[in-house]
Nucleic acid binder design. Sequence first.
DNA 1: CACGAACCGTACCGTACGGTACTGAGGGCA
DNA 2: TGCCCTCAGTACCGTACGGTACGGTTCGTG
Lengths: 215, 215
Amino acid sequence: MQRAEATRQMGTVTGLTERQGAVLEEALRLLVEGGEKALTTAGVARAANCSKESLYKWFGDRDGLLSAMIAYQASKVRTLEVSAEALDAAGLRAHLVAFAKDLLDVLSGDVSLALNRLAIGQASREGSKLGRLLQERGRRPIGRRAGALLEAGRKAGLLAFDDADEAYGALYGLVVSDWHLRMLLGEDAAAMKMDFSRRAERAVDAFLALHGRKG
Amino acid sequence: MQRAEATRQMGTVTGLTERQGAVLEEALRLLVEGGEKALTTAGVARAANCSKESLYKWFGDRDGLLSAMIAYQASKVRTLEVSAEALDAAGLRAHLVAFAKDLLDVLSGDVSLALNRLAIGQASREGSKLGRLLQERGRRPIGRRAGALLEAGRKAGLLAFDDADEAYGALYGLVVSDWHLRMLLGEDAAAMKMDFSRRAERAVDAFLALHGRKG
DNA sequence: CACGAACCGTACCGTACGGTACTGAGGGCA
DNA sequence: TGCCCTCAGTACCGTACGGTACGGTTCGTG
């Protein structure tokens, strides 16, 4: 029974057993608490009550463990798809504000910050494998959600822009500005976190002033 | 004579001898080439033809060396002050575009990216001492230059905004968007670097559409 | 010339990490 | 019952790094 439970797959996507997911969970906890330096193979094994040998069997080597952590975390964050309902101006604004607030919440999350720091720290060597993984699994889904929303807004005659990527870039910049970098550099996220809603609304209003039709 | 030259101060600000500056230069080169992993005390000593003992005498410990590298690099980047001449609309736009292009150039520079990666990698532990140093020495001078420019634009009746910080945040976001993070994650900067001028102009035009007076 | 300060080169030490090998226990399966 | 597979726990190895100590050299100074 215990054996069967351990072998059962977590989800069809990840290809990990529940046991392995629990190990990755512990690894993420260690990373959030102490940074990359605290993420040693012996430490993960101890924290997760497993042997180093199992770690190497499951994930290959330390880099494999790091990649698995990113993939695992990305698999947990599900971006809700925008409903294709008919949009009016107020609905579009509400959707944009919700998107902006979600974006700020995700970027300021402990795990997100820790994984971004990890990938950035490794970006100089090894062809930035982790960086690409983080981009594909973390950033691109968010961009797709925003892209669909912007496209829907244009189809409904509420937005005007030539290049969807450029419009999304403007929205992203207005929402995030340099906050992400400042949080990555260690500025207290809690102090900045106040009033994400207000910030999201101001940014969306500015974006609509740029790309909204008939104000 | 050679001794006297070695003792001469580089600049009144840094408090470093030329020899020490040359050592930091080599350390920065190593950091840019191989990332933090390549920045070992033995490696710096070998590359700079100095002894590890001297390194520890001059900079205290490894963290002191890292801090000195940031301070040294910041002392080299001098932000040209905006001339307080009378501004017209075209002049303001030109100044803003120049600022935006400088900002993109600085952020995409090899040394800047390497130092940001270094500080971000260390942000989790030690209270992010390097991160704060990088903010104070690197980011704040740039912000002051932009702030002065925006204030001059408002005084000349060319710009309208309530909060200068918020206006600067919008300008920064429109110019940089997520490019800085993507470069930090290892995305090829050279491929993105094309057409910084064009990007700066589009961003400034958007900013002026938001905060410019009489368009 | 003699003394001392600064410094280079190198050898050295303790430690910590990544990765491997071994042992023993528990449970599925015939 | 006996076999086998998996895994936890631990001991082990090689390496690499931060930091320290020492011998030898150069150069300024009295």
